[in-house]
Design a protein around this nucleic acid. Structure first.
Lengths: 132, 132
DNA sequence: CCATTTACCTACCGTGTCAATAGGTAATTT
DNA sequence: AAATTACCTATTGACACGGTAGGTAAATGG
């Protein structure tokens, strides 16, 4: 399952894209519109700022703002940032992990194929594609 | 991530397919070959028996056996049995779940598309495809 | 300059799932 | 009867998930 962090992150970006007015948008507004606690959203936007997906500004008139155009965000970068990895097995997620069965593993090729398919799927979805 | 239950289940089925000799194969043998504790495998094969993916027999000469040919098993049925669901969101996993945002949800179509892609991917993989 | 607004930071916590382990009982064959 | 094997119930430690709580720092408007 995709965690709430990943799903809420997409909703935050969508909300910012739809309510873009050139100014910073307070998290409070987003929280109210989306029906998600502001406290919890703080954790999520913090990650989004750290990942350079949006910018924040403190003080009166502050808030958050997208730092690119909606069509320049892929869903894969959002999900991979928030989820850590979308890989199905640790053998793919962690390059440092050394599985003793690697050479003989009969399932690894399938997981690799799966991983590529998933990545390509979300890389092909832009934020702008989700706006109706 | 796919859990160990799902991944070990595939390995058990593969092991049974490769060592098929017409007789029941003791779990002890599978555990030793696969390097997985017999105790933990008990949980997994119990689920596999319950899901009609293999049959077990008690007593001397007992053990486990596939109940179909390897090409008649899809990986999707194995994973969906062991993981419960592969759906990315509860809105898809649980038909009884009623999301108040369902009608307005901008992301649901993407999740549905993703879910179908994943299902089709694993439904297209047969157990026999993994045997080298 | 001060009050207000806003982001930003650190810590904490209850619940549930995962990945096992432990210690039995029932069934079947030799 | 003894050995072998599946089958059953309970327990456990670690960890992640999904939050909550209570602050501090920064910026602006009046």
């Amino acid at each position: 399952m995709i965690s709430t962090k990943g799903r809420y992150a997409i909703r935050v970006l969508l909300d910012l894209a739809e309510h873009d007015n050139g100014h910073y948008i307070p998290l409070k507004d987003i929280a109210e519109r989306q029906g998600i606690s502001k406290k919890y959203l703080e954790i999520i936007v913090k990650d989004l700022v750290a990942g350079n997906l949006l910018t924040g500004a403190s003080g009166k008139g502050g808030g958050y703002k997208l730092c690119r155009k909606p069509e320049e965000y892929t869903i894969s970068e959002v999900l991979e940032l928030m989820e850590g990895t979308l890989a199905p097995v640790v053998c793919i997620a962690d390059p440092a992990y050394e599985c003793p069965r690697r050479q003989a593993c009969q399932t690894l090729p399938m997981w690799v194929e799966y991983d590529e398919m998933v990545h390509n799927f979300f890389a092909g979805k832009k934020l702008s594609d989700l706006i109706r």
